[in-house]
Design a protein around this nucleic acid. Structure first.
Lengths: 219, 219
DNA sequence: ATGCTTTCTTAAGATACCTTAAGGGTGGCT
DNA sequence: AGCCACCCTTAAGGTATCTTAAGAAAGCAT
């Protein structure tokens, strides 16, 4: 029954063969530069500082880029692919704090900033390509080119607004409302991520999400 | 070094009589400068920029400093007193997103940044004294004195980390665990704020919080 | 003091959500 | 092809939390 039809046209996917040369870094970096430019246009110097500061990396499905106990030393920009960041509680259950797909950032900001061990895991849910910047390089970027202070400041603010929104929803809405809002808000995610993971993000069991979906499909 | 040159009235009592002259602004501002200095020491110029940019204001209990539909035009530093920021849902129920007491910031960052009408209310729970800065003045402060970019960046990051922590707790913990954590985490708040408000912050009804408290007291 | 509002509590019945268990479907791997 | 891992669903019974209602205690206003 009305399971949402999954058709991902693959033609949009820039198939990147990492082995064929230096172009891949160029392509990935270009995507990041476009992204920065959409916030505040960069001049040549700033753009080349970005090129120098970020390093590309291929991540295989199920590969971790952060593990509990590690210090989060990199800030990560997703060029292609899909990640989730989660916590494992005392009972051994996973709870998804965040997803990240193309043009999203991911990392444990707390650990990155304080340099204390993280309690979080970040794992690739698909084969992925990322650009990473080390903390020291990011600080240098901020000092040498103050514009990045502003840009990253806006990212953090946006993340905070989204987090506050989610808190309000968690304390005021039912799981069904949260699920409907998720579908509305993240159309790029819901046909790409398993319901198990979405349930964990919403804070319900997969079984209960299933009954919610059944109820919705009857409407 | 940098302790800004601001006259401190010898009177160490926090009792502020607004009518007796200009000292009150001095005292309030001094508290804010101390606060900034505890993050990054300010030089004289920066300190005097703060003095010029922030305006003191007395807020009476039950008085609003932000109302749904308003655009949040100020960033607010609490010198003395206590506030809560909340949302009213479709059913007319209030849900507390945040509290703020001495040396905390409060405001609807989303509305402040986008200049769109807010959906939130901010109200004083006690007679209070605040220092406010207008958005334009804050931007000017950032431009003229880049250090404030960093300082406010740290504030925002800390707020984001706290918000993420709360999300994880909401999706992984029971109400009792959340309440115990609240007591642990905000000892300055729990004997100052009514249980009705705490319940609304935790996302439970006051009745249920009452049964939680009863259960805890029996241990 | 008298009343009015707010707070906290208690309890009974309802609803949201979880746990456990089971079965079927799909895709990857050999 | 066959097996295995993972995902999705369904259902029964349990727990967490809400709703409604009521009453007692504490603060605030007239």
């Amino acid at each position: 029954m009305s399971r949402p039809v999954i058709q991902i046209p693959d033609n949009s996917k820039p198939e990147i063969d990492w082995t064929t040369g230096a172009d891949q870094k160029t392509m990935a970096i270009h995507q990041l530069l476009d992204y920065f430019n959409s916030f505040l246009p960069l001049d040549e110097e700033e753009a080349s500082a970005v090129v120098n500061a970020f390093h590309p990396r291929r991540i295989k499905r199920r590969q971790f880029i952060l593990h509990e106990g590690d210090i989060c030393t990199h800030n990560t920009f997703v060029v292609e692919g899909c990640f989730r960041m989660y916590l494992i509680d005392e009972k051994g259950k996973e709870h998804n704090l965040q997803f990240a797909v193309e043009n999203w950032w991911i990392g444990d900001i707390g650990s990155f900033h304080t340099e204390q061990p993280s309690r979080l895991y970040i794992v690739a849910m698909e084969d992925s390509i990322v650009l990473q910047i080390r903390k020291g390089d990011q600080l240098r970027l901020f000092e040498d080119h103050p514009k990045f202070n502003r840009i990253f400041g806006v990212f953090t603010e946006n993340a905070l607004v989204a987090a506050q929104r989610r808190i309000l929803q968690n304390i005021s809405s039912t799981a069904e409302e949260r699920y409907l809002d998720f579908l509305d808000r993240y159309p790029q995610l819901f046909n790409r991520i398993s319901n198990v993971q979405i349930a964990s993000f919403l804070g319900v069991t997969p079984e209960f999400l299933s009954t919610i979906r059944k109820k919705i499909s009857r409407s």
